[in-house]
Design a protein around this nucleic acid. Structure first.
Lengths: 343, 343
DNA sequence: AGCACTGCTTGGAACGTTCAGATCCGCGCG
DNA sequence: CGCGCGGATCTGAACGTTCCAAGCAGTGCT
């Protein structure tokens, strides 16, 4: 009835070879004679054999499983970014023979406890970190314990120092390039007075995005005084975005605004519509909401990012390529929709 | 240097007992004398011992891992629902000693292939199905192969027949109760002419939600002719929601509208604002967008749903309770915000 | 005293894989 | 002919856990 799962042993008997030869066919095909390989392959197919992950893991100590912490709360609209990254990551890992396991943790300290636990039970081979931030102790802990990992997000600490602790593989999206592209797009449309609606100082991601706008505006010949007044800083959210936009319109009357998030951009849209002004708006992250309401937005190449993250991990795990760069900065691209129009 | 992971053996030596006694302390604490237990517990703590999941799995054949398919694309705004469910599921599983592993599949047939693969490599103990729909072959396959699973979503096939194939554990949210609650809320506010903005016939979830509105309206004494004109059916999306709302306003001039999704509700908001009417609006799913724009919406109890789903799975896996009902229908609750106001 | 029984503990075996070392074979060469 | 050599394959052993049958005291009963 229950035909008992085929094992290396039963496949070997069927093919008239030994266990080890079957194992070799699967793991080191090059050291087995072609003829033997064929015979073994046939036996595998006939019996529908699949190696037991548990046995393999017990023997080799590796599980071919990657761990990823699911963030506690994804506030607002922007959580969808990690969601899409997660999907792409899972898919990339699958094509490379790895799987993704989830875990949760309320804060960084607990996250490290979970690392310890998951590693001890020998469940996980590597971790993917997201939402890196200043004073992030996780990367240091992992590095110190020789655990392979990659972060989606640059190590923001001591970005100037280039310290050893920060020298781990990472993938990130060039936020500055995104806002630069937004400014360029708006200038192409004929806009000159382009405001920036960003977050308060202290956020690294926010600083990056703001820097791109600043650089592009300076390049366009804008001077310090007006430039400063074109730069609004508010906490993320639709409401705060709407209010800040009203202030900007009253103060410096921009014809366009680049936003640090789609939430802020949505707020800007609300105010613009209420006032009946033709304010052009560009959001950031290209969340589903942006597509839904016709908001032009800067899209992160999440599929590419996930793919590269897996590459960097497997470089460490399988030791294949030390050749590749361990730091990957990807350029986002702009998705033009209704809200970016001529002045 | 590398102090080699503690094993049952080393703990046993330290505590002056045998391997098996240590194992018993962990797995069947009741059959070990209290004094021995204490000694073993101390040794475990001193050495920082943790059982190897791989070895346990190899011996017992169970991995304590649940599988969940990540949907290919989450279009629009509503994808966030599964996202939150996923988080709650992971958390619930963790508290019960289980973990969640992800996989992807482009369609149902491939998903079944993945089941086969993941089960064969003995990686997964059970599955969580989402997005159940008509002619869903997945549940039948899993049941036939005696794989424990639970679905988030009712088996919609032959809901009338109550066939054996549909007799599997499931958790779902009562959509009809949600729309009924929305109507009740609006009537409390003084609305009488309450429209419904839903999806085309053919969607089971959509039918459920529409039925709740219909029932509530009939209870309120509305008759067939006007009632039918108050019911709009459009494909999901902000744009289509906006257009349909315009039509409704022109045709039957409702003072409020209940929507099948936050996307549609967002569209309704757009039209209402454009026209300057005080249309009251209730969305569905309480997505982050709803919170962001102040949209009243029906919230699914996703944490509770995930928790119950894990309960139902563990009933099968650990054989604890056959007592519990295997079908769980949860009531959603309404989150009142700015868009539900007096007429 | 002998015996069965209960409560707690024990050592051997097994799960299915990979590693390390041994074996076997054919071949070229001194 | 004997020897070494390299390619191809095979045979124990080990990974760390749980299952199983058995051991071993102590207790109550005959």
């Amino acid at each position: 009835m229950e035909p008992t799962r085929p094992t290396l042993e039963s496949v070997a008997r069927r093919a008239g070879v030994s266990r080890q030869t079957v194992s070799n066919v699967l793991n080191s095909p090059d050291i087995v004679k072609a003829e033997t390989t064929d015979r073994v392959r046939a036996a595998i197919a006939e019996l529908g054999y699949r190696p037991s992950a548990a046995a393999r893991q017990l023997r080799t100590g590796r599980s071919r499983v990657l761990g990823l912490r699911l963030e506690p709360v994804r506030d607002g609209i922007n959580g969808a970014v990690l969601d899409r990254f997660l999907h792409a990551l899972t898919e990339s890992a699958e094509t490379r023979g790895y799987r993704v396991m989830l875990f949760t943790a309320p804060d960084d300290a607990r996250e490290i406890d979970r690392y310890r636990e998951l590693l001890d039970t020998a469940d996980l081979d590597a971790f993917v970190l997201t939402s890196t931030h200043r004073a992030d102790t996780r990367a240091a802990w992992l590095a110190e314990h020789d655990v392979p990992f990659v972060s989606f997000g640059r190590p923001w600490d001591r970005a100037d120092a280039g310290a050893a602790a920060d020298d781990h593989p990472w993938v990130d999206v060039d936020g500055a390039a995104g806002t630069r592209a937004a400014v360029a797009h708006l200038r192409d449309l004929g806009h000159e007075r382009i405001a920036y609606l960003g977050w308060p100082d202290g956020s690294d991601v926010g600083g990056d995005r703001a820097a791109g706008w600043t650089a592009a505006m300076v390049d366009a010949g804008h001077d310090g005084a007006l430039l400063r007044r074109l730069h609004a800083r508010v906490t993320d959210g639709v409401g705060s975005g709407a209010a800040a936009t009203a202030d900007l319109l009253d103060d410096v009357a921009p014809t366009a605004v680049v936003c640090a998030s789609d939430s802020l951009a949505l707020g800007a849209m609300t105010t613009a519509r209420a006032r009946g002004t033709g304010l052009a708006i560009v959001g950031f992250d290209d969340t589903p909401v942006a597509a839904a309401v016709g908001l032009t937005s800067v899209a992160q190449p999440l599929t590419e990012a996930a793919h590269r993250a897996v590459d960097l991990l497997l470089d460490q795990l399988d030791g294949t390529g030390g050749t590749r760069s361990r730091r990957v900065l990807l350029a986002p691209h702009l998705v033009a929709r209704d809200t970016s129009h001529h002045p």
